[in-house]
Amino acid sequence: MPDGFDQFVTDRLDRLLRYATAMTCDRYLAQDIVQEVLLRAQRRWARIAAMDAPYLYVKRMVTNEYLSWRHRKAARDISSSTRTLDRLTPPVADPAVHHAERDAMRGRIAMLPRKQRAALVMRYYEDCTDAEIATVLNCTEGTVRSHISLALKALRADNRVMEVQR
């Protein structure tokens, strides 16, 4: 039988990296975290593979690794580094008219508290259910809904002048 872990990595690495990047707003931090978690998961693979949803479990490991990140100031630094990165390497031009609005939104998302952002990314990028998000964040579904509604409120309050151009 081929190494189950290798298969998992082949299938899921790209998605995990994208998820972590969206959550951390820092591609290198995301790389660090995903690498670290996969190395750990590899050693316990027999146990993880036996679970109902190995991907969800690994995603939970990635999320927890980020949420328990020692440097509390990370969130602030990250959002500023995102802006710096954008200045240095502007994202590839997109013909969409609301390109600027989208990047402004990116900046605001980067400023959200980490848990709210994690919930938001799972909802709007991974299309997770409340129950799945609750499992990953180890909280109730009510708390998940509260994270997301707080995040949306913050993004909107910040965003009064913005309306997607048609």
Binding site: D14, Y19, Y28, Q31, L38, M105, I109, A110, Y124, L155
Partner: peptide, 25 residues
Amino acid sequence: TNDELLIRQAIATEAEQAVDPGVVL
């Protein structure tokens, strides 16, 4: 809503910044 659409696009753009999986492999 428009907001949600924008959030979805913003997050997708952020996710696009991910490093090449080959590096991690």
